[in-house]
Amino acid sequence: MTVQTSGRHVRRFDRKARLLHVVLMTCFLGLAATGLPLLFSEEGWGRALALLFGGFRGAGVVHRILGATLLAAMIGHVVDVLWRALVKGERGLFWGPTSMVPQPRDITDLIGQVRWFVGRGPQPRFEHFTYWEKFDYWAVLWGTALMGVAGLILWFPVAASRVLPGWSFNLALFVHGAEATLAIGFIFVVHFFNGHLRPGKFPMDLVIFTGTVSEAELRHERRGEFDRLMAAGGVEPLMVAPPASDTIRRGRLIGTAGLSIGIALIVLIIYAVLRQSLA
């Protein structure tokens, strides 16, 4: 991991985005740790994990608090994006090179990346958000919405029964568990690899904690964005001071904690799946 504390740095994530990520990862890790005991209730570690939060009631309370926080954060984010687009008139949010919305370019980038994987071409010139980053974003947004709705049904079944049939609780519980499996597996394996553990980033990419990326890294990793910025008059308008060493230390601490917890949980899951499939 090379984090340059000197040289030319470019702003990538503003304070709001960084805060959203920290809230998201805290809630996600906590929700996983308090929810997995139920998903793996037949495992000894399931009970141990629940006891860590004071038993299933304690784990349930923490789970509901974190779930509500995460749902609120995601609603806040959606409101913020809509506000920026509709009220403040910010451009490029829903379409264009800096948008999170999938573009035709993402498909050609994916094809290009796979060609690069197999040695049949250069790595694509990525824009502000790569296709796998967009996948992460939409998976989380969609997953949170789905998990949130299912979670609320399970939290308030009597209230839910006034508008939904009782079998929706069965559906909600199933979806909550299956979507959790998908999300936990995706975040703790795929996102961890793509964002942090892959060669070149290992053991972690601090950009989401510091908010800045060096000009060299931008040129190397997102050549498309770099070229676009240069064509539009250079990266100077986006230039910021390199991250302070305190910021880096804090980022490493949070990142290490998050990665460790996530990897520990995925190891427990793999152990359980192997144990159950061998039994």
Binding site: Q113, V114, W116, F117, V118, G119, W132, F174, V175, A178, E179, T181, L182, G185, F186, V189, V190, F193, N194, R198, P199, G200
Partner: peptide, 23 residues
């Protein structure tokens, strides 16, 4: 969900594996 989970993990296992190999 069986298809979704298998598809998602299958695709990204391949994607990450190739990426690791190439890098």
């Amino acid at each position: 969900y069986t298809v979704l989970i298998a598809g998602c993990f299958g695709f990204f296992a391949l994607h990450s594996g190739l990426w690791f190999f190439r890098s």
